[in-house]
């Protein structure tokens, strides 16, 4: 564990900072992909432009920015019934700190059911299969598992609802809206071929499934898409956590448990 001259520098293709002349620890200017963030982008750019450029080397086209903006709205609040928002509310209702409520939302919103991992896996599938229905059929039949992974083994095709009856109105509305911007090829194709696509999985498409496709259309890698999904779903968790705090824990559902099996074991 030795260090030489350059090991203490963080290397980045994305971000550059120039110091103030009187303080090497203060920033005079910060550039993202060459654009002056505080000198030029403030007041001129949209938040989605900034978000897009954090992950891509170029600024988004208007269609890409609009798609990202609509996707951000679609994902912003999964609603209190969603596991991640429920977890954040468990923090908020008992006065846990703001950051721990968001950590709870992240932890619970990270998994393979409607979470970041589901988007990652779905995006891997899109990378492998594209718009080839036969390839989809084969891949969904034999999803393969990663032995020794920290993730629980997948229990349903990613991007589809294991408990769903048919495509929900919300999913159809989001898909139709995003497809109209035509930022890529997958969304418009899927909007036309939804029935056939869902038949390959024998389950309806979910909102995280739509998010995966939109993120793939916007040129995000599966790793980036997972991050985006995690980030974009947090505002609702934050708002509901704040909302529950003044309502108090007595109004918040606690549930009832029913112990199974022998009630008490090993009692003397």
């Amino acid at each position: 564990m030795s260090d030489n001259e350059n090991t203490n520098a963080v290397r980045s293709k994305m971000w550059r900072e120039e110091p103030e002349p009187d303080n090497p620890f203060a920033t005079r200017a910060a550039y993202i992909r060459g654009y002056d963030v505080y000198g030029e982008m403030l007041g001129n750019a949209r938040w989605v432009d900034m978000l897009y450029m954090l992950f891509h080397s170029e600024a988004p086209t208007p269609a890409q920015a609009d798609t990202l903006e609509a996707l951000a709205i679609a994902l912003a609040n999964p609603g209190p019934r969603d596991a991640s928002v429920h977890a954040a509310m468990c923090g908020g209702v008992c006065g846990s700190t703001a950051a721990s409520s968001l950590m709870a939302a992240l932890a619970v919103g990270a998994g393979q059911l409607a979470g970041g991992r589901e988007v990652f896996l779905a995006m891997e599938n899109w990378q492998a299969c594209g718009t080839d229905l036969e390839a989809w059929q084969q891949r969904l039949m034999d999803p393969g598992t990663t032995p020794g992974s920290v993730w629980p083994a997948p229990e349903h095709p990613p991007g589809f609802d294991p408990h769903g009856v048919r495509t929900t109105t919300v999913v159809k509305q989001t898909l139709a809206c995003l497809a109209r911007y035509a930022a890529g090829t997958y969304l418009p194709w899927l909007n036309e071929n939804l029935d056939a696509f869902e038949a390959t999985a024998k389950a309806p498409l979910t909102l995280s499934g739509v998010a995966a496709i939109a993120l793939a259309d916007l040129g995000f890698s599966p790793e980036q898409g997972e991050m985006m999904h995690l980030l974009l779903r947090l505002p609702g968790a934050a708002a509901h956590a704040l909302e529950q705090h003044p309502l108090g824990y007595k109004k918040f559902p606690f549930g009832i448990v029913e112990l199974e099996g022998p009630e008490l074991k090993g009692q003397s």
């Binding site: 619970v108 919103g109 629980p152």
Partner: peptide
């Protein structure tokens, strides 16, 4: 409940 929900949503331990 946070730990349980993480399991329910198939997140990591």
């Amino acid at each position: 409940r946070v730990a349980a929900m993480a399991g329910s949503a198939r997140g990591t331990g």
